[in-house]
Computed example of a mutant assay.
Amino acid sequence: MSALTLRGLTVRRGACPVVDAVDLSVAPGEVVGLLGPNGAGKTTLMRGALGLIAADGVSSLAALPPRARARAAAWLPQNREIAWGLSVADLVALGRLPHGRGGTPADRAAIQGALAAMRLETFASRRATALSGGEQARVLIARALAQEAPLLMADEPIAGLDPAAQIATLELFAQLARDRRAVLTSLHDLNLAARHCTRLVLLDKGRKVADGAPRDVLSKTNLASVFRLDAALIETDAGLVIDPRGVLA
């Protein structure tokens, strides 16, 4: 059963389609990386899929009532600003709201598990607004994890994180997939996407131009036509490496 199904999803600004008739499915056990240059439609696609903005076509999530949708998918937007003077633990606990306000053992276990997953146990009582930008980003990821939804949708989740935290976050997503959850995440780092995603979807000017295994999607032809990169593809023991040689005119 798919965690997300999109058929012909289209989002317009005026008469111009920003996302143009995209079909997409994400299944349990997958980490699907959404790639494309700036303005390709990655964020708009996810927001349209969630019903946060008006869209045409079919989205299995947007069709759900709000609380059911929040139980089906956790959303981590690009905006990492924390405006509330809550403790880290209380902010992470907000991820449990779709499940009620009972403070049950299951709620407490989910909150503690999310704090541990993002290495935030020692920050639990600290005010979230007093943390650094990277630490706040980890708090918001933990809030999404505490939701325990079958699908995590994360828009540029590793932006602003240090290299170790970036890799740890993507390894965490891989663990979610091994636990039969699904992840759809937009990324800009092509090498991290190639190494940590089970599947990649490439957007350009709002259209899906490739969908498949990383080595197929990140072909020399696609890198040239979509990203304007002259790049060599190198197979290593650790996986596929994209070695940019220059920018094409």
Rank of each mutant, 00 (worst) to 15 (best):
Ala89Gln: 11
Asp90Ile: 00
Asp90His: 01
Asp90Gln: 14
Leu91Lys: 13
Val92Pro: 03
Leu94Glu: 14
Gly95Ala: 12
Leu97Ser: 10
His99Lys: 15
Gly100Cys: 02
Gly103Asn: 06
Thr104Gly: 15
Pro105Cys: 11
Pro105Asn: 08
Ala106Asp: 13
Asp107Pro: 06
Ala109Asn: 07
Ile111Pro: 07
Gln112Asn: 14
Gly113Trp: 01
Gly113Cys: 05
Met118Ile: 04
Arg119Tyr: 04
Leu120Val: 07
Phe123Gly: 02
Ala124Met: 03
Ala128Glu: 04
Gly133Met: 08
Gly134Trp: 00
Ala137Asn: 02
Ala137Met: 03
Ile141Asn: 11
Ala142Met: 07
Ala142Gln: 12
Ala144Asn: 05
Leu145Val: 10
Ala146Asp: 08
Gln147Ala: 14
Gln147Ser: 13
Ala149Pro: 03
Leu151Trp: 00
Met153Leu: 15
Ile158Pro: 01
Ala159Arg: 04
Gly160Val: 07
Leu161Ala: 00
Leu161Glu: 00
Asp162Leu: 09
Pro163Met: 12
Ala165Met: 11
Gln166Pro: 09
Gln166Asn: 06
Ile167Glu: 14
Ala168Leu: 03
Ala168Tyr: 01
Leu170Lys: 10
Leu170Thr: 00
Leu172Arg: 15
Phe173Glu: 08
Ala174Val: 03
Gln175Tyr: 01
Leu176Cys: 14
Ala177Leu: 01
Arg178Phe: 11
Arg178Asn: 01
Arg180Gly: 05
Arg181Phe: 09
Val183Ile: 01
Val183Asp: 14
Ser186Ala: 00
Leu187Phe: 05
His188Ala: 12
His188Glu: 02
Asp189His: 12
Asn191Arg: 00
Leu192Ile: 04
Ala193Ile: 13
Ala193His: 11
Ala194Leu: 14
Ala194Trp: 05
Cys197Asn: 11
Cys197Tyr: 02
Leu200Met: 10
Leu202Val: 00
Leu202Glu: 04
Leu203Glu: 06
Arg207His: 10
Gly212Pro: 14
Gly212Lys: 06
Ala213Ile: 01
